[in-house]
Simulated assay, not measured.
Amino acid sequence: MILFPNAKINIGLNILSRRTDGYHNLETIFYPLVIRDALEVVEADQLEFTSSGLAIPGNATDNLCIKAYNLLALDHKLPPVHIHLHKHIPIGAGLGGGSADASFFIRLMNEKFGLGMDVIQMEAYASQLGSDCAFFIKNKPALAVGKGDQLQTIDLDLGKYFIVLVMPAVQVSTSEAYRGVSPAAVSSPLSDLIRLPVEEWRSVIKNDFEPSVFSQYPIIGEIKSKLYNAGALFSSMSGSGSSVFGIFKEELKLPDLEQNNKIFYGV
């Protein structure tokens, strides 16, 4: 059985306060993209994980799909499976690719082996694997608060716009990005700001990671500037980086940015 886990972008990201558990309270909008991995699961003699496409750092036993299997196995009788992941979503880009793989694995196992889990149960398992994992169970635009694991589905459709995603040849670790931010109060909740026309987002919606990440990796900030110069209505780094997206009124090509970066058009 095969599913195709997709990426997401963050539209706005406000760091609100530091939690006693070491995490931060935040608010952000998750929006799904059509950049996809391919995830296949077949029954096997023993549990095994293999991959192709982009290189995945770390040991196979540490992959979130394996962790998801072991988590499900605590409550469900599962046969051993061979998991194969073809990786296409850039890693270390703030696109949630690993989280998507884990959550789609939970969905796949539920369907393939008739585990009988509803959406709430699958979200509960997914949230144990990562702060943004639960989003990919419903996989619909959502306001995320708390650690990013408390979700409220919102009415947001960017289908009439043309989204360009630019991935520079750098990666930003999440822990590194968090070291450079300080919690701050916000004047208006993101749930209100996202209702404004996209043309107004530029002046009111921000990503708190950008100042520190741009200072360490100026190329990321330069990409955002170039997207605005090319006519983007709104541009932002996604999550803690390093990818940057631009929302345009019309389809276009950006050959200058193609020279040193990976670009996804119409995502």
Rank of each mutant, 00 (worst) to 15 (best):
3 L>I: 00
12 G>Q: 07
12 G>W: 04
13 L>M: 04
14 N>H: 12
16 L>C: 05
19 R>D: 09
20 T>C: 12
23 Y>T: 04
25 N>D: 10
26 L>I: 04
27 E>C: 03
28 T>L: 06
49 F>T: 05
52 S>F: 11
56 I>D: 11
61 T>G: 08
61 T>N: 13
63 N>I: 08
70 N>C: 11
75 D>N: 11
84 H>D: 07
87 K>G: 12
98 G>E: 09
100 A>W: 13
109 M>Q: 07
114 G>S: 08
114 G>I: 13
120 I>Q: 07
127 S>A: 15
130 G>K: 08
133 C>M: 10
140 K>T: 10
141 P>D: 12
143 L>I: 05
145 V>A: 01
158 L>V: 14
161 Y>H: 09
165 L>P: 02
166 V>H: 01
166 V>R: 03
170 V>L: 06
171 Q>V: 14
172 V>R: 01
173 S>P: 09
178 Y>S: 05
182 S>F: 09
192 D>F: 02
198 V>H: 03
203 S>G: 03
208 D>M: 04
217 Y>M: 08
220 I>R: 02
222 E>C: 03
225 S>E: 04
226 K>A: 01
227 L>A: 03
234 F>Q: 05
235 S>K: 00
237 M>A: 05
242 S>W: 06
245 F>S: 01
245 F>I: 01
246 G>H: 00
246 G>C: 06
247 I>C: 02
248 F>S: 02
255 P>E: 09
266 G>Q: 14
